[in-house]
Design a protein around this nucleic acid. Sequence first.
DNA 1: TGTACATCAGTGAACGCGCGTTCACTGATGTAC
DNA 2: TGTACATCAGTGAACGCGCGTTCACTGATGTAC
Lengths: 224, 224
Amino acid sequence: MINPTRKQILHENTRDEIKSVAWKQIEQQSAAQLSLGSIAREMGLTTPALYRYFASRNELVSALIEDAHISFAQALEKGLSSLPLDDHAGRFRALCQGYRLWAISHPQPYSLLFGSPVPGYRLDNEAARAAEHSFLILLGVVLAAQQAGKLSPQTEAVSLSILHGEQQPGPPAMVIHLALSAWSTIHGITSLELNGHNQIILAEHANEFAEIEITRLMQSIGIK
Amino acid sequence: MINPTRKQILHENTRDEIKSVAWKQIEQQSAAQLSLGSIAREMGLTTPALYRYFASRNELVSALIEDAHISFAQALEKGLSSLPLDDHAGRFRALCQGYRLWAISHPQPYSLLFGSPVPGYRLDNEAARAAEHSFLILLGVVLAAQQAGKLSPQTEAVSLSILHGEQQPGPPAMVIHLALSAWSTIHGITSLELNGHNQIILAEHANEFAEIEITRLMQSIGIK
DNA sequence: TGTACATCAGTGAACGCGCGTTCACTGATGTAC
DNA sequence: TGTACATCAGTGAACGCGCGTTCACTGATGTAC
């Protein structure tokens, strides 16, 4: 890969095209229903041709999940980039909003990442590390706020201190706990919305609802 | 059905047995993978025999979802039954805990109800009404607290007043909003846990985490 | 510049699998006279 | 009490489908001499 030949580049391009066709189909249906046959058909190829690029369906799904994690993390970071580092509340809010917006505009990728596991698929190590990335972004924002003394949660969040022992390096347990709280909250709102479960109640007020809930969350973890 | 004959009773029993075998298999795998063949095999029948009891796979799934809704709602109500009607905070907490416990002990049924929709399945009206039931239980608890003046949310929850117009009968918009907040929150914690997404962080502290989060939620909606 | 060779993307046929569903049928059970 | 009939649970074979995967192959492309 240090000196990619012309053939290697072509190979990589086709690999990318397969993934992009796969995404196109996932957007419309669901990741569980993704089939190699329909991808090949759309590309004007026969199914076995795909085996030049992915050793199995599973490997393709792995690659897709990894890409989704990267795309998701990038979207979150982009939403933060325009905000000053000391605007902790603003950054936190932007993160929550960015999270929900990405999820809403990419419902199938989102449920691929955070929904029920795809049947028969097993997460490998590389994908697991990509999964952490988006959480680390959230963790970073909460940690920065805490270090600046801009965090005063209404509830004691000490349970996780047990988890890491007492003198563990890395973010304080409280910060981890609060970041996870935030994640849980946003995920709850988002996934109910994506699966249409709150639609009867909210109808077109989903945006307002999410906004208010983010405010409540911010009050609850006391970010300023 | 007013005067069920012996045959009709037997028919109903077999119907129940099919559903219970289906549940047994769903508990282990996933609802999307449920197959008529494996159900029949486990019952010592051939696949076409099931068509005496359900017109299609879809109808069976419908019946299962409906049953799950009923079972879920009953579990919630049972958790409330031992608590005095004026212990609003206690009832709310019990409801949240009951919600999470049912979900954890019935992971597949839970994701059948509140996860991604089963591919190819369309919710009918009867199932939709059963779905409302569990939410109405939550709504009832929040409403009772509000009427007793035991509710003082930290955030203004007025957006939904627009939804129902101004002089709409039924619970005030704020109550609906807060009930939905609670549902979102618990669902978020629960579904992250069920899909194993917070496992790396929480490990065996999931219970503690949930407990603290419920407390935070109660503080946030100000239930006393 | 031309020839021999290696590479490798893509094909087409086949395998084995499981799926939901249909259909004509058998045979036991319960009912009516 | 015994016979004729209707009911209906369950069978076994078949249909048509789509799936992932394998394999021997063709044929174009690029490389080495």
